[in-house]
Design a protein around this nucleic acid. Structure first.
Lengths: 129, 129
DNA sequence: AGGCAACATAACGTTTACGTCATCTAATTG
DNA sequence: CAATTAGATGACGTAAACGTTATGTTGCCT
């Protein structure tokens, strides 16, 4: 079907496709967010790597730090099939959910404060002319 | 009325009152956000300085950079730029609102994904024993 | 063979918002 | 008067997320 799945990319190819620099991609790798295979010393990215990078970029655009993203990705990974692993995963997921809920609340209140400021700035501009 | 208006503060007094460090306050000064008078070499802050610093801190909490804040504060000086100031404020606030809304969406979708992961981890633990 | 284009690593530079010394000086206090 | 205490530079440190050389290596084309 989608021959896309079989495509392989070099850093710069992938970088161009996704609109980032090769440097950035290599940097993500040093941060443990990516781990492409190698052909000699050259990085070779496959479909999964591409998808992973896209996920990273989306998350970034939306304000998550690379550390955040990494933690998040780690929750997806192999995660081992063992009971111990599953329990650990569950705990981590729950912790993460809790902390994200707190972020959500903080975000909400910041937003409503900003909306009030916006409204009052609007009024004051409307009135004065 | 409010004798508060006559109070003067040293850096550390002001810092303690507003819950920041003296270092931070001095730093804001180097960035042109504050310019207290001096008694010899010692900084002396008055009511206005205090109000200004409070404004700075509130803005920071809402996610604006010191550069943003400075831009805004700079428009206050000429006794007439009020209108421009309000317009700038409105622009910046709206930008910020937009970016926070995007973050909010990202957070929401991340949260629901995590909840699915949680559910499936739960099931898999339940089933296996 | 020669040479460019693309890849790689290493390492220093940049911005933001301060923290953390190290030193110095002026003013208060026992 | 000596010792604290406060305040003032000045300079280096820090974390995040890369940008920017510098330098080296390799594969491919003519």
């Amino acid at each position: 079907m989608s021959d896309d799945r079989d495509r392989l990319y070099t850093v710069t190819e992938l970088a161009d496709r996704l609109g980032v620099t090769a440097r950035a991609i290599r940097f993500y790798e040093t941060k443990g967010l990516l781990s492409p295979r190698r052909a000699g010393s050259t990085r070779v990215y496959n479909y999964r790597d591409r998808a992973r990078l896209q996920l990273i970029l989306r998350s970034k655009k939306l304000g998550f730090s690379l550390a955040d993203i990494r933690e998040y990705l780690d929750l997806y990974d192999p995660a081992g099939g063992q009971r111990e692993q599953q329990q650990l995963l569950l705990r981590k997921v729950r912790d993460r959910i809790e902390s994200l809920q707190q972020q959500q609340e903080a975000l909400d209140s910041t937003l409503s404060e900003l909306r009030e400021i916006e409204a009052s700035a609007c009024r004051s501009l409307q009135q004065r002319k």
